[in-house]
């Protein structure tokens, strides 16, 4: 019996936690597993993750999940029905459209905005920061001055002005938000780059004749990723709120698109008597941005235990 336990093969857990990994894959999986364990110990962070998985699910299967059309309503028979009405779980708006269906379809817009902004802003910030940090000297001075100038601007107002000039619409809202949200990423990437720039392994790669571009992209940028991911996740909530704000002011997605902020704006006129029209989309925004905040907090604690002060 005791002999059997001594010679049995490693369990999956032991294989992952081994301090002498046999392969690069095992080391990576082991690291990921440790991060996951720290992350999943944080119940709120898991809730955040579940919220966002739910959002992705709803967005992916919106056509199947939504009981009604998001844009065509029943003007004759179903205007401004309160929540819980027959067939309309969350009630209907002034054009007889099912609010639940609009929320479900709106999740696609929210997700699209967040993903697009992240795809545009994060790489820009990453490259600016990594180049500035690695190059140093006047390149660093100029790039960081530009970054600081953008940091000193009022983000929302600037985004408003951009959209005003570009014209309303969800694409322009994405561009405007992306333009105003890259500077913090550049700062983070620069800070991380400065800490790795003078390390021995970078010197080793340089001695082997790697080009600066190769060093920056293959060896510096990956080191910035974890703090950048945390920051982007935490920023997502702000991005959602800004996008909703632009929608609320009529500068984001245009009718009849079921954008949540625009839905609040259109429900505003009925707030005193038909409170649900404006309330429901607000709850949706709150839940999703709460999800991002919880996930971001959890990721920060899991990826960077120093910061969490355990």
């Amino acid at each position: 019996m005791s002999l059997a336990t001594e010679t049995r093969p490693l369990t999956r857990r032991e294989w992952l936690l081994s301090d002498r990994p046999q392969s690069r894959l095992q080391a990576r999986l082991g690291r990921a597993y440790m991060t996951w364990r720290r992350f999943s110990a944080n119940r709120l962070a898991v809730v955040g993750l579940l919220i966002l998985l739910g959002l992705c699910f709803v967005a992916a299967f919106a056509d199947l999940l939504a009981p009604h059309s998001p844009v065509i309503g029943n003007l004759a028979g179903a205007r401004l029905l309160p929540p819980g009405s027959e067939g309309y779980l969350l009630g209907t708006d002034d054009q007889g459209r099912d609010i639940l269906s609009r929320l479900i379809h709106g999740s696609r817009l929210t997700l699209a905005v967040v993903v697009l902004v992240a795809i545009i802003a994060a790489p820009v910030g990453l490259i600016v920061g990594a180049v500035a940090g690695y190059a140093g000297g006047w390149i660093d001075a100029i790039l960081m001055r530009v970054t600081d100038i953008f940091l000193a601007f009022p983000k929302l107002v600037l985004a408003l002005a951009f959209v005003a000039a570009l014209g309303p619409g969800i694409e322009n809202a994405v561009i405007a938000i992306a333009i105003t949200s890259w500077p913090p990423y550049a700062r983070i990437a620069r800070a991380e780059t400065l800490t790795v720039r003078n390390s021995d392994y970078i010197a080793a790669v340089r001695l082997m004749g790697a080009s600066p571009a190769r060093i920056v992209f293959r060896h510096v940028v990956p080191m910035c990723m974890s703090s950048l991911i945390v920051r982007v996740t935490l920023d997502m909530a702000g991005i959602i709120l800004t996008a909703a704000g632009l929608g609320f002011l009529g500068l984001g997605a245009q009718p009849p698109l079921p954008e949540w902020g625009a839905m609040i704006a259109s429900g505003r006129r009925f707030i005193l008597d038909q409170w649900w029209v404006a309330t429901m989309p607000g709850i949706a925004i709150l839940i999703v941005s709460l999800g991002f905040n919880l996930l971001g907090d959890g990721l920060r604690d899991a990826l960077d235990p120093r910061e969490s002060g355990q």
Binding site: G245, G261, I271, L272, S289, N293, D297
Partner: peptide, 21 residues
């Protein structure tokens, strides 16, 4: 966390509904 996550204009509408109306 809620303060970080809530849309300000929406909360303002609700506050008007409750405290004024």
């Amino acid at each position: 966390l809620v303060g970080y996550s809530v849309p300000i204009f929406w909360l303002a509408l609700l506050a008007l509904l409750v405290f004024y109306a």
